[in-house]
Design a protein around this nucleic acid. Structure first.
Lengths: 163, 163
DNA sequence: TTTGCGGCTTCCCACGATGGGAAGGTCAAG
DNA sequence: CTTGACCTTCCCATCGTGGGAAGCCGCAAA
């Protein structure tokens, strides 16, 4: 089957499938005479494995390890388990960090009246500043261009978790 | 003062200070005759504001908004508060996502004996596969080079939260 | 004064995972 | 045969950060 079909069946974009091949996460696909990549059910299965692993927050590099563990029918289940447990630990650390941010922000926000007056403990907290002796001048209307750029929207989508 | 001093005082790396200037997050620094950038206390203060905002998980673009809010002494505190509240929401979404990953992984790990036998519900869960009819062939010893790369270690540091 | 060193400058490259898009080849249906 | 959907490769951008080179600057010790 073609890459588009494999993509639909696995939930991995064609871009990513080619990328995974390029980086060696998956073996080079077979090719039709035309040059089109050809996938079979086992390939799709592997791609689904990869997608599920990504959904669980593993990096591509870690997934390389998982694929090896999957392929190795003689490795101990404890190897897999410790891999998973280590990942859980990392995820929990991340949660803890975010939790700390939330706590800080909430305590700041709790003290903010949120009315039309300008005094704001949130900004003061970020500035560690009660007066405004050091309040900066207004930034000149910066259209937020990257180094030489002309602004691009392109993916202002859903929250993502990058580890 | 020089950029290195401002960096030490603010906790923002010199690389980042220049980057923030380049992207317009901060105004172009004054220069000595030598061409060296020159910072004053207000600049350092702004950098500290930026660093604290980053630590709270705001993106650089959002910090642009925060700086504007800080500079605008006539804006309502409710503007700041809704900004902060929105951010808290995004943070919580992220926590929820990670929590889901952890729950899934833990339930998988709970069923794994973690002994020296190979049967492993974790791998099976990722593969959605109870037998091993579709178990992939071993990946050829891939030294995990990027497209053309010769591997780089470079920052294998602490867990970070990227939003 | 020369030498040396550390700090500064700009410029380019890399990371990880992903998407956009251009230029061109292929295939099946009409 | 044309059309349109699909495929190929190649390059570029994202976001925030660091690495490192090549070259200038400033200060202090020899």
């Amino acid at each position: 089957m073609n890459i588009g079909r494999a993509s639909k069946l696995s939930g991995v974009s064609t871009k990513m499938i080619r990328y995974y091949e390029q980086t060696g996460l998956i073996p080079k696909a077979a090719r039709h005479n035309s040059g089109y990549r050809d996938y079979d059910d086992a390939d799709v299965h592997r791609l689904r494995f990869i997608r599920r692993s990504r959904d669980l927050g593993f990096t591509v590099e870690q997934i390389g390890g998982l694929l090896d563990l999957w392929a190795d029918r003689s490795r101990a289940s404890s190897d897999v388990k410790s891999f998973a447990l280590g990942h859980i630990e990392r995820l929990k650390e991340k949660m803890t960090e975010i939790e700390a941010m939330v706590r800080t922000l909430e305590s700041l926000a709790d003290h903010c009246h949120g009315d039309d007056r300008p005094e704001c403990p949130i900004i003061d907290g970020l500035a560690e500043n009660d007066g405004d002796s050091l309040r900066p001048k207004r930034r000149e209307p910066q259209r937020f261009g990257r180094p030489g750029g002309q602004s691009a929207r392109h993916h202002g989508g859903a929250a993502k978790v990058t580890l």
